[in-house]
Design a protein around this nucleic acid. Structure first.
Lengths: 197, 197
DNA sequence: TTCTTCCACTAACAGTTGTTAGTTTTGCTT
DNA sequence: AAGCAAAACTAACAACTGTTAGTGGAAGAA
């Protein structure tokens, strides 16, 4: 029953290495023998730490989802304008991503390999998250923060596309801090939405 | 030698079905037996039409690349402002995508499964395409079309992220025409870049 | 020492992978 | 009717897939 304490460290090593591998080769193309080799052990030994290959994917995807949702929740609580909420939401999203770019890449690109019912659950979480951003944009349109002639669906999809491809090109050794990057991204996107007074 | 004429039709059927399958399940998770089943034939029969699984992927990726480059080239030739060039470039890109959303999705998500040296070639084409957009943006900054304080790398990456995720959420039975969509997307992105006079 | 927990091992499984060789069917053209 | 090419078939290959069963060593606690 010490599993919850001491096993975690080794189990986490396995999961982190798996994240790297899944990001690199994709979930399907990454074999358990590849993963084992990266850790210097035999494939069968992995099963002392994890229940299945998919369990790793599940952990990676749902843990990231939890972080994203927590970040957005704290933004929603604040009593600020829609424009500021959107800005903070974007910065928060970028910060969560930057905290683990590898897991973020997996979260984004490999979640479709989840089996049911996990895939369904994941997609529900995801659409909920997106809709909450959409609500912020709609708020901003009502309040006059944003232009009235924008297609909110297109806007929110553009927003997410921009955010989600970050792990693909943002290098962790980059000099720019995540907050600054989020700032810039928000600036670029929001000024595209802003009313031309 | 009739291969070039009559074989094409069946070979193209195979490639199109493969594109659907690759988009759906991902290249690695899609087996040749899956593909054969979709076509109502045996897996081995596929090899009357194609040389290998990867040949299909190569065809899909490089054919799309050719189309994208052709579209951009025709835009570059025009003697218009940088802002207009960017607008036309975006519309062109969206139109090429819309012409084959399935192949576009494969182009975007599965190209990494190309083996060398094809992968290298593909990435070179891709970076060249991106750099040509970047040049347009830099032109626009010099000419005063765009704000001077934007990070061009971030801008171009945001642009591509937005463009590239389109096949994931744009449904072909949507009422909106590709040109209109490209128009809107360009509007949203460009007004984010536009100088606030 | 003995017990327990962690972590690795070997051996093996049943199923799937892309692909080949060789053969037969199909349908058009002469 | 004969011939030809396209396109399908069956059978099989070697390699690889995720995973299980059972075992053993190492390290710390009793």
């Amino acid at each position: 029953m010490a599993e919850a304490i001491s096993n975690l460290s080794r189990k986490e090593q396995v999961i982190r290495k798996a994240a790297e591998l899944f990001k690199e080769k994709g979930y399907s193309a990454a074999s358990m023998r590849d993963l084992a080799q990266k850790l210097g052990i035999e494939a069968a030994s992995l099963y002392s730490h994890i229940k299945s290959k998919e369990e790793i994917l599940r952990t990676l995807c749902f843990d990231m989802a939890t972080d994203f949702r927590a970040s957005l929740s704290s933004v929603e609580k604040q009593n600020v304008s829609a424009r500021e909420k959107l800005r903070l939401g974007i910065i928060g999203h970028v910060q969560v991503m930057a905290r683990d770019l590898t897991a973020s890449a997996v979260f984004m690109n490999e979640h479709r390999h989840l089996s049911q019912p996990y895939l369904r659950d994941f997609l529900l979480l995801r659409i909920n998250y997106i809709n909450r951003f959409k609500t912020i944009i709609e708020e901003g349109i009502s309040s006059g923060d944003f232009r009235k002639d924008i297609d909110t669906k297109l806007a929110v999809m553009t927003l997410f596309s921009s955010l989600n491809w970050m792990p693909a090109w943002f290098s962790p050794d980059s000099t720019i801090e995540p907050e600054k990057l989020g700032q810039q991204l928000a600036d670029m996107l929001i000024n595209g939405l802003k009313q031309n007074v």
